[in-house]
Amino acid sequence: MKKFFDNFENYFMAGGLFIMTFITVINVMSRKFLGLSMSFLEEITTAMFILISLLGAAVAAKRGGHLGLSVLTDLIPKKFQKYVALLTWAAAAFFSFFLIKFGVVMVQSEIKMGMTTAALGWPEWIFGTFLPIGGMFIFVRFTLWTISFFISSKEVK
């Protein structure tokens, strides 16, 4: 069970990419052979792309794979790398805070105005929740990465 939760984003992204690929191929075939475009499939694909992009950022944070993490810390002496890690976490926390805050405001607005998607007619807030959810995943993964960075830097000494 621990392995599942450690790799939740990976499993979700793999499933989402499979779904996106499948429905995009269906839509392309429909356009090519039937002359029909199924716009509801494009709505789903776009929403899944947003969620997968945000989860991908969280996975990169979990692995320490963001460009600034390795480029900056590799150039700095070991004793100062913890400050860069802390600064990176602060920037990620700031960014995540705004993703979550404005994502929640957006969802509340969508609920209040009763907005629905153009093709599916689904409540817009369903897709809108992807923004604060993604922000939470990014925050959690950056926080866990920072904690593990500090723990590993203490073990090296």
Rank of each mutant, 00 (worst) to 15 (best):
K2R: 09
K3T: 14
D6C: 06
N7P: 05
E9I: 00
Y11T: 09
Y11M: 10
M13L: 08
A14C: 05
F18M: 15
T21A: 15
T21I: 13
F22P: 06
F22N: 09
T24V: 12
V25H: 06
N27V: 04
V28K: 02
M29A: 15
K32G: 03
L34Q: 09
G35F: 11
L36I: 15
E42H: 03
I44C: 06
I44H: 01
T46P: 03
F49T: 10
L51E: 06
I52R: 02
I52M: 11
I52D: 03
L54H: 08
L55Q: 02
A57Y: 00
A58R: 01
V59N: 00
A60H: 05
A60V: 12
A61W: 02
A61F: 07
A61M: 08
K62L: 00
R63T: 05
R63H: 15
G65R: 05
G65F: 04
L67W: 14
G68N: 09
S70I: 11
S70H: 09
L72Q: 14
T73S: 13
D74P: 07
L75D: 05
L75E: 10
Q81H: 02
Q81S: 09
K82E: 05
K82I: 14
T88C: 06
W89S: 07
A90I: 13
A90T: 13
A91D: 01
A92I: 03
A93V: 06
F95L: 12
S96Q: 06
I100W: 06
F102E: 10
G103P: 01
G103N: 01
M106S: 14
M106D: 12
V107R: 01
I111C: 09
K112P: 02
M113N: 11
G114S: 12
A118V: 15
A119F: 06
A119P: 06
W122V: 08
P123E: 11
E124N: 12
W125E: 14
W125M: 10
I126N: 05
I126P: 04
I126T: 09
F127C: 00
G128T: 05
G128P: 03
F130E: 00
P132Q: 13
I133S: 05
G134S: 04
G135Y: 02
G135N: 08
M136A: 14
M136D: 01
M136H: 02
F137P: 02
F137S: 01
F137A: 11
I138R: 03
F139H: 08
F142Q: 09
F142P: 00
F142G: 01
T143S: 15
T146L: 12
I147T: 09
I147H: 07
I147P: 07
S148Y: 07
S148C: 03
F149V: 05
F150I: 12
I151F: 07
S152F: 04
E155N: 13
V156N: 12
V156C: 04
V156F: 09
K157F: 05
K157C: 02
K157Y: 04
